[in-house]
Simulated assay, not measured.
Amino acid sequence: MTEGPLKTKLQSCENKPVSINSFVIGHRGGGTLQFPEETVQSEDAGARMGAGILECDVSFTGDRGLVCRHSLCDLHTTTDILLRPELAKKCTVPFTPANATSAANALCCTSDITIAEYSSLCGKQDGFNASALTVKDYQSGTPNWRTELYDTCGKVMTLNEYIDLVDAYPGYRNFTPELKTPPAQVPMPFKGYTQQQYAQDFVDAFRNKNIDFSRVWPQSFLYDDVVFWLQHDHAFGKQAVYLQEFDTPADLAAGMKNLSIARAAGVNIIGPSLPMLLSPGGPDNKTIVESEYSKAIKANGMDIIAWTYERSGPLATVKSRDEYYFESIANLTHYDGQYFDVLDVLVNQIGIKALFTDWASTVTYFANCFGLKGPDASKYK
């Protein structure tokens, strides 16, 4: 980091006790830099590093079981399903090796298999080798800033197992499940299973476990899901995070116009990606500042929970890699100490209520140092 008040403040907290903090949301578990995502091991790591809220992305299986997986159709890159011939043959697109004109390919969805079959899988670091000639070689492809050291059969979870796991951690932990949007390969209704049934089953999983809804911060990219919860399970829906990923100026402009509509429908929290919140500014546009979109969210009376921190690898190469999470400020990011500059803007300029992170310890340190508390369930009506 460059010398200055922020560095001095962070250094002053070096020996300060660090505790569990609900400002910190364990993204895909919170230990994703080193452990396979959406696994018990990633959740354990995120919890040990102080994340007060832990995530499970919720997908459904062919027999309508709810499981933790970031996408309905990522099993071929995040699990060992292709190494299980009896399950690999059920994939939407079976493995085909690379050839002179095409990359290696596969597509395996949670909806291709049963919940019991899903639970037999091993989680691995997300990645694949596009040049692979064999299924074994296809398992590679982990970004070089992560590690495969702990790819030793990560324990995948059902939604019920996730709820039990988080509820059993020492200290007080909360939940942020995300209802995943089914991709085009899994059209809804799926064998009669509607999006609203899916959204209701998602709620009922917590009700059946007697989890107080004040501990649950549900999420979805689908506006209709959030409105459904607000209308049918308001105690659940009032803390719902309406996730957003608008990349073009036209999308951002349209999103800005729709903020008042979302607020009128009862939406309390918007969940934008980092590039939606950060912009160049100051003299010669050489300073990271709050975006106009961020200001518009707050002007409409809604809180912000942002995503995703430490998912980008070394900042010196984010521009050359077209790294998504820093695309709006790629010309300004050159060294890893600027991760803290980004945190400073998010917290002390924008005032976000919580932050998703792939490695919970960094944000936990920052949150404890600045006395952050996380979102307040009592304020949402």
Rank of each mutant, 00 (worst) to 15 (best):
L72Y: 12
H27Q: 10
E55I: 03
S260W: 04
S71G: 13
L259G: 11
A299Y: 02
F202M: 15
T8Q: 13
F213E: 05
K90F: 02
G371Y: 10
C369P: 13
G171D: 04
L277Q: 08
D322S: 07
G141S: 12
F35W: 11
V18P: 06
A330R: 14
D201H: 05
L252N: 09
W229C: 00
G52W: 03
P85I: 09
R311W: 00
G351P: 08
V267I: 12
M256Q: 15
P143E: 03
V186F: 06
A316K: 12
T308Y: 00
T2H: 13
G271F: 04
G141H: 13
V93A: 05
D225M: 05
E292K: 13
Y169S: 08
K90P: 00
C122P: 03
Y380W: 01
R215S: 12
F175C: 06
V227S: 08
E14W: 02
E245Y: 14
D137N: 15
S71W: 03
L332G: 06
K319W: 11
A88W: 12
C122K: 07
Y365G: 04
I329H: 10
H232I: 00
I25V: 11
I269E: 00
V24I: 01
V289Y: 09
V186W: 05
N285S: 12
I163A: 06
A100M: 10
G65S: 09
R173W: 07
P183N: 10
G154C: 00
T92V: 02
C56Y: 07
G65T: 08
P97G: 05
G171F: 02
V135E: 13
H232Y: 00
H232K: 05
W229P: 00
N268L: 02
A51K: 04
N285M: 08
I288F: 14
S220W: 11
V318P: 10
K298E: 01
Y193H: 04
G29L: 05
L10F: 01
K180P: 01
G52C: 04
G171V: 03
I288Y: 14
A360L: 11
E178G: 02
I261L: 10
K124G: 04
Y138G: 06
H334Q: 07
L54P: 10
Q219V: 08
M188G: 07
G141Y: 12
I304M: 04
E290A: 14
L75A: 11
L343K: 09
I20D: 07
M1R: 11
F35P: 01
E14T: 09
E37T: 03
G301C: 03
L315G: 15
R311E: 00
F202D: 09
Y335F: 09
A98G: 14
G271Y: 06
G154E: 00
Q200P: 02
V93N: 07
R64L: 06
Q219G: 07
P170Q: 04
L243K: 03
T147V: 07
L87S: 09
D251C: 06
N331I: 07
P249A: 12
T152R: 13
G255Q: 11
L6Y: 02
R263A: 12
S120Y: 00
A184L: 11
V186C: 05
K379T: 12
S12Y: 10
N160S: 15
M49Q: 13
Y198L: 01
E38C: 14
L315S: 14
K90Q: 12
E292H: 08
G31M: 11
S131L: 15
A254W: 05
Q34D: 15
T134W: 14
K257Q: 12
F370T: 10
V24R: 01
S214P: 06
G271E: 07
S19H: 13
V67P: 06
P275I: 08
